[in-house]
Design a protein around this nucleic acid. Structure first.
Lengths: 331, 331
DNA sequence: GTGAAAGCGCTAACAT
DNA sequence: ATGTTAGCGCTTTCAC
């Protein structure tokens, strides 16, 4: 047993003391003399002793680890958030365990159970669905997508963007460019987040006396380049003569731009394009994408911070970050 | 204690039997009557009992989890590999814990220690450095980058592409297009993998009587769009009059293509471009990127498979997958 | 200041 | 077929 590694018991024997004292030295609580500490540390160093975290966690009924449930690690946007969460958590001595659900609710549920069994300290959802009400007694943070109010139990909070304002910004920009017949592309599975963007967009158009044509609201099943291509093709073929489109994700906009390019539709002269997120690629395509920037990497740092504060028993509040219009060349 | 969840002991009490029997029922070993099984299952279902994996793992001195150490989860290439690993492992009842090192060797070391303390079952390195010799008694699989032979201890294996052939394919293609003065861009931190590609490339040119000019070998510090831009600028300014460049990663090639576009250098007429990997974006840029495809998602499935076989005590061998030339429009 | 011992939830002998 | 019990490595009372 123990796979060659030594236990606190052997350390105690080698340092000529008891397991209790060794434990006290390691964790720096309780009292012990300078000399015993010295002896214990020597043995620990010499044998490069590593405490068994499993036993520690069992005893304390808590793992010093946070589960990060993300709906698609392959997305630049989510991966960026996750990377920040991980590095921030790491600095606080927590381990981030990343669980990728592929936008699959079944997997989401399995992961939540598993994290519970493993006595994790908390969960951060990055873009999760969480539409079924899965109970969990762990502290939870939702990032990016806000779940239906029903699952926003206490001991949970939300971190995301001011999506309403994001929609406004996009609408305003298009109006300012004289694009009076825009389309909007939404991700169909999301609720609150997307709805807010739609509301803001609609408001901006209405303010300019150009109410949004309901037929110009398009939906997409997956946030992929291909999804962006296809919806753009649908828009062109719809016969609605849209002069611009606001995609609620840069990935979609980039797929759309590619389609227009192949279809020999000039951007922005023929059709103007706007995205949302501002992923690194957006500034690199030709022409560079005009978009609404979300501070999505900050979501990650903030989420890590919040959950650690929750663990300390502090109360934390929802955080709504500002968005920003990034002028480039597709409008 | 126990956070509201009940233990095997309480299940035993409620089902009017002993902990041993409950354990036997749960794990399906040992013998028990149909009737007791029935009673136990009822209680388990009624209370939605979830065994404490911490205790189980402590007892068995092994977690049913595999650590996946990846050097940058933000990369499409690595993320794709990781996603396959995770889904394959999941199907076998293993949990994949993803550890992102940001190409940082210190983090790599910390993660390895941690996975050891937590008694994980094995480790999969995706693009790791692992240049320092960190001991670890766990089975290890290396994916994509082959570590120096010194750290290829037994109980470890490598899964990757035939990089030599990849280099050949790129060189051949450029020669066939009459591009007699190509440059090659390598990632400086990698050893074996990159060296093989260089060797293959060099061989192909030599075969055509156009030995590679050593000044036309360029290095990049980070595999990012920006890295690709910068190295391309350096190539243009070098005064070497290269007529084509082979980037050993699509990301770099895409950054390079963008730079050339801005510098009004026609692709492929002025300069021909080749990448390697074939990430989803490559077919979507304008013009679509000619590249050497790696079956990188298959790396993931294979890695998961191999480590599970290792855990069963089977011996596994290095796996070298074939690469394929993907003709598109940049050559 | 230090040690003995109980006990976290579980599995696997070893009884019966 | 089922129950009793030791013990995995650790922390934490409770004595001394």
């Amino acid at each position: 047993m123990n796979n060659g590694k030594l236990s606190i018991k052997e350390i105690a024997r080698l340092a000529n003391t008891s397991v209790a004292t060794v434990s006290r030295v390691i964790n720096g609580n309780g009292r012990f003399s300078k000399e015993t500490e010295q002896r214990v540390r020597e043995v620990i160093d010499r044998y490069n002793y590593q405490p068994n975290m499993l036993a520690k966690s069992l005893r304390e009924d808590r793992m010093k680890a946070i589960g990060v449930i993300v709906s698609d690690i392959t997305s630049d946007y989510f991966a960026g958030i996750v990377q920040e969460i991980e590095s921030e958590l790491f600095r606080h001595g927590y381990t981030a365990v990343i669980c990728d659900t592929f936008e699959n609710e079944e997997a989401e549920k399995r992961f939540m159970e598993m994290l519970g069994n493993l006595r994790f300290s908390g969960i951060i959802f990055v873009g999760g669905k969480r539409s079924k009400t899965l109970m969990s007694d762990l502290p939870i943070i939702y990032v990016d997508r806000k779940p239906p109010p029903a699952s926003m139990e206490k001991g949970s909070c939300f971190i995301g963007s001011d999506n309403y304002r994001g929609g406004c910004l996009a609408g305003e920009r298009l109006m300012a460019a004289g694009r009076h017949n825009p389309a909007i592309v939404l991700f169909e599975d999301e609720l609150e987040t997307q709805r807010q963007r739609l509301r803001g967009f609609r408001k901006a158009l209405a303010d300019h006396g150009r109410p949004l044509d309901p037929r110009c609201i398009f939906h997409v099943e997956h946030v992929t380049y291909e999804g962006g291509r296809q919806v753009t093709e649908r828009i062109l073929r719809s016969g609605l003569h849209c002069d611009s489109v606001f995609y609620t994700s840069d990935i979609l906009a980039i797929g759309g731009a590619q389609y227009l390019n192949e279809a020999h539709v000039a951007v922005p002269e023929g059709i103007a394009l706007m995205g949302m997120d501002d992923i690194p690629l957006s500034r690199r395509i030709t022409p560079p994408l005009t978009t609404v920037r979300q501070q999505y990497r900050r979501f990650g740092a903030l989420a890590a911070d919040s959950i650690i504060r929750m663990l300390k028993g502090e109360t934390v509040e929802d955080l709504i970050l500002d968005v920003e219009l990034i002028e480039r060349a597709t409008v």
